[in-house]
Design a binder for these strands. Structure first.
Lengths: 211, 211
DNA sequence: ACCAAATTTGGGTTCAGTCTAAAATATGAC
DNA sequence: GTCATATTTTAGACTGAACCCAAATTTGGT
């Protein structure tokens, strides 16, 4: 339980790597920093770096991990008389109002997402996460409606909801990156988002006719 | 006009690269073939290969290019009394019935998409294309509704429509890959797709209240 | 046949990522 | 404390994608 010296050192090494990586990426961008450089500055060999972080991207997202289960959680924890669309809408508006860092609505979060946007590799990784989030959402929707996992209907529904959600987040982040005022973003996008999701509402609850 | 020897040779080289790549990829998969090998078998240097195809993925998708403007085209060319959702639905069902290769609904197309699915790199690339397709769709929607490009509403709408479309195509391709009978796929997914898009219909036409 | 422009090539370099075998280090038993 | 064992770290070599340059080749026009 007390975690021996071995375990402690491992955590230190890991933290050292993650932190120096984070600092370097922040000041120079993802593609302008090599893993070798990070390892050197963390006082460790390149092999050790790859031992803790299988890819360079993992080194980046360690400090600010992308929550791939967020959408599913939102839907699962929503009260049972709420449609998935409404649950996601509420989540989005809430995040907007509380200036959630995941949306880039504060100085350093904006810098984080700018770094992501500037690197094709990181953008690709975040698309991958989004895809996993969509699958998780499909799973959650299936659970909620008592359907078996893998039911095509839940996947299509998840696709539409996730597509809308991602587009909304994308618009928000884009504005956050360009340094737009958060409350202006809220005013500008809030109604549009609300409008869109209100139309998505109808598509959630009724199961398709069993024909 | 007649295309001199120079141009002819270029096309030959290009074709040789594309074809040998295609053959190698088909029989061994994307990651099990190196650009060096392709170049060698095409009787050309590695540098020349990269001269014609900036990345290895381009070498793959040259034979079966992903149409990143398809969605936009569908919406643009649809009769003006049709909603975008209906246009996309019709396109999808049409492709399903005519066993469009883009859906993997024939032997070699299924193999193509299996190869894509088995390679993280190729999957990433196809996600990238999908994103561009979504942007193009947003642009087309803006055009259609006389709005200015970049209007957030069109982006959100495109996100939802594109999300649904992609999920549908994903389901179809997955079944095609596992060798399911195309007409069974149609029976199984057709109604679900129709159901989903019919609910998306309402969200297309009415512009948001000007507040 | 010759010159200029375009194409191809060889060689070199960087960087991510993998592998193996050898050093360094912690742990537990005595 | 010391020794055997397990774990971590390291050096070193290697592959594959991708970029760069300068030299060699080929082609088009004359």
């Amino acid at each position: 339980m007390t975690m021996g010296l071995r375990e402690t050192k491992k955590q230190q090494t890991r933290a050292a790597l993650s932190e120096t990586a984070s600092a370097l990426f922040r000041e120079r961008g993802f593609d302008q920093v090599s893993v070798a450089e990070i390892a050197r500055m963390a006082g460790v060999s390149v092999n050790t770096a790859f031992n803790y972080f299988p890819t360079k991207e993992d080194l980046f997202f360690d400090s600010q991990p992308l929550a791939e289960n967020h959408l599913a959680d939102v839907v699962v924890t929503a009260p049972s008389d709420t449609t998935p669309a409404d649950a996601l809408l509420a989540d989005l508006l809430g995040a907007l109002q509380r200036r959630d860092p995941a949306l880039g609505l504060c100085k350093d979060a904006a810098a984080f997402w700018r770094t992501v946007a500037e690197s094709p590799t990181l953008t690709a990784r975040s698309r991958e996460i989004a895809e996993r989030a969509e699958r998780a959402l499909a799973h959650a929707l299936a659970e909620r409606s008592g359907r078996q996992t893998g039911d095509p209907e839940t996947h299509l529904l998840a696709g539409a909801l996730c597509g809308a959600y991602r587009a909304a987040v994308g618009q928000i982040r884009q504005r956050a990156i360009t340094g737009e005022d958060p409350s202006r973003v809220l005013d500008e996008l809030g109604p549009t988002i609300e409008y869109l999701f209100s139309h998505l509402r109808g598509l959630a609850q009724p199961l398709p006719p069993p024909s």
